[in-house]
Nucleic acid binder design. Structure first.
Length: 469
RNA sequence: GGCGGCAUAGCCAAGUGGCCCAAGGCGACGGUUUGCAAAACCGUUAUUCGUGGGUUCGACUCCCACUGCCGCCUCCA
């Protein structure tokens, strides 16, 4: 059993070994809580959940830390742009703290609906201002910072290996720069560790610091909290692929400058969900300005089970862009419904004593451990369901696989409808009588009546059963 | 403009030198079943992997060119 993971740092897949034998220190960049998470954001969290489950299925314990970014960072680089949290607060007529709490809870609800296991530690940026200030002080003492008129900056020219994660050529970066560089920065890639509040107005969120009243820069929170909760060395740090060039690059810079040694061994990044092109030609990355903004709530309104979206994500590899389309989601929803029906059927023959089929499990786990190849793992699950074995064994195997898949097999229930079981049985009996009398018009009328109530009848060898339409 | 990635059946998507005349799912079609259905099950659905060259005994898999699409370089999962 060998787990291999693709490391952005080395650009290839390597056998994974944790620093400490049986404990994996995992840090995943969490949400900025000023709006609902869209399904593109959520794809990354599904990938991280799979990672966690595969680590556990590989016999490793995991300590998982996720941050909540509740400090109002700016909508664009440097001094331009507005505070995202303040924007949200103004939009909804609430305080920034209410906004933060509301959207954090909304995020947790989304996680629950997608069967994402919660982290062991949730940490909010605003609860860790002293830790962030302490980290900036350390950097200052070591000579990595400078104070400009609008904040304290990290001097990237002091690090010889700045940008190693993104493998960016700093000169090329300068040449291609589309953004005007903040006047106060010495080098284009320099980034703020602490920003001062504007002199003419009070910010909704600000704190005193040795350098003046203000708020922490965006990158510093993750480093400060990761060190606090996971120690000076981290096994795996994850996030979306967009974090490679800026956020994670800067996290590495500040953390390694402060610690004086390599900080994270494995960087894993999830690719984007992109919108399939529509007739108007619109498509690409999901964002508020273009390409639509779909949330779990949107999917539920349209009648999809959130887990159908999880299944949809599992059908593609996490390092591959996944094109979202309603047709694609429909296909996943059908597949998921089929799986559910199969599981409920197999469960009838399950006593709780059956063991998972060893060969099938091995094939499944091998796929999971090959850099989380869930499409292959899922394929092996479908193949397993066709192997000659007792329903109980198949169900036991499916349950074991679901430890990783997280499709909620054990919790699946026949869906309830408006009518009681006894009432439905009366309809069935009446139709049965009509059928016996060869009065098929009457039998079909009863069936039609039930369809109108959302119930479908199916005549099988064991009699007539019903299910929700 | 610079950097990176991708292109596999109607759709989604694995595979990345011989096990591939290419996994799995969805859809479609045919069959079993049914009073008719539905569901389920069985079968069929790419001799071929964007196009053109090259390397090799052998390429979907490596190299080059071309075409198309996407992402990053700016807050961003």
């Amino acid at each position: 059993m060998a787990l291999s993971l693709y490391n952005t740092l080395t650009r290839h897949s390597d056998p994974f070994t944790p620093i400490e034998d049986a404990l994996v220190r995992l840090y995943t960049c969490g949400p900025t809580v000023y709006n609902f998470a869209h399904i593109g954001n959520l794809r990354t969290y599904v990938f991280e959940d799979i990672l966690k489950r595969v680590l556990r299925a590989s016999g490793l314990a995991v300590r998982h830390v996720m941050n909540v970014t509740d400090v109002g960072h700016l909508t664009s680089d440097a001094d331009a742009g507005e505070d995202k949290m303040a924007l949200g607060a103004a939009r909804e007529g609430k305080s920034v703290w209410e906004i933060a709490d509301f959207y954090w809870q909304a995020f947790r609800a989304d996680m629950q609906r997608l069967n994402l296991q919660e982290p062991d530690v949730w940490c909010k940026a605003t609860d860790h201002i002293p830790e962030q200030i302490a980290l900036i002080r350390t950097l200052e003492e070591k000579g990595f910072t400078y104070v400009a008129d609008d904040g304290v900056y990290f001097d990237t020219s002091k690090l010889s290996d700045y940008g190693k994660l993104a493998r960016q050529d700093l000169k090329a970066l300068k040449a291609g720069a589309r953004v005007e560089m903040s006047q106060s920065k010495r080098n284009p890639p320099d980034f703020a560790l602490w920003k001062f509040s504007p002199k003419d107005k009070q910010r909704l969120m600000e704190w005193p610091s040795p350098w003046g009243v203000g708020f922490p820069g965006w990158h510093i929170e993750c480093s400060a909290m990761a060190v606090k909760y996971l120690g000076e060395r981290v096994d795996i740090h994850c996030g979306g692929i967009d974090h490679i060039p800026v956020h994670h690059t800067n996290e590495i810079a500040q953390a390694e400058a402060a610690l004086g040694h390599q900080w994270v061994n494995w960087w894993l990044h999830g690719e984007f969900l992109v919108m399939a092109k529509d007739e108007s030609g619109a498509g690409g990355k999901m964002s508020k300005s273009s390409g639509g903004f779909l949330t779990i709530a949107t999917l539920v309104e349209k009648g999809y089970d959130p887990l159908a979206y999880r299944y949809f994500c599992l059908n593609a590899h996490y390092r591959q862009q996944l094109a979202f389309s309603w047709e694609g989601l429909d296909a996943a929803a059908h597949a998921f419904a089929h799986l559910k029906k199969t599981a409920l059927e197999l469960r009838k023959g399950y006593t709780g004593r059956e063991k998972p089929l060893a060969a099938a499990m091995e094939e499944f786990l091998t796929a999971c451990q090959d850099d989380l190849n869930m499409p292959r793992a899922l394929a092996s699950a479908w193949t397993m369901l066709r192997t000659p074995a007792s329903p109980g064994e198949l169900y036991a195997t499916l349950l074991a696989m679901d430890e990783v898949l997280g499709l909620g097999i054990a919790a699946m229930q026949e869906e309830s409808v408006g009518l009681s079981e006894a009432e439905i049985q009366q309809y069935i009996a009446a139709r049965q009588a009509a059928r016996k009398a060869k009065d098929f018009d009457q039998a079909d009328a009863i069936r039609k009546e039930l369809v109108a109530k959302g119930i479908v009848l199916e005549d099988g060898p064991a009699g007539t059963i019903w299910r929700k339409a």
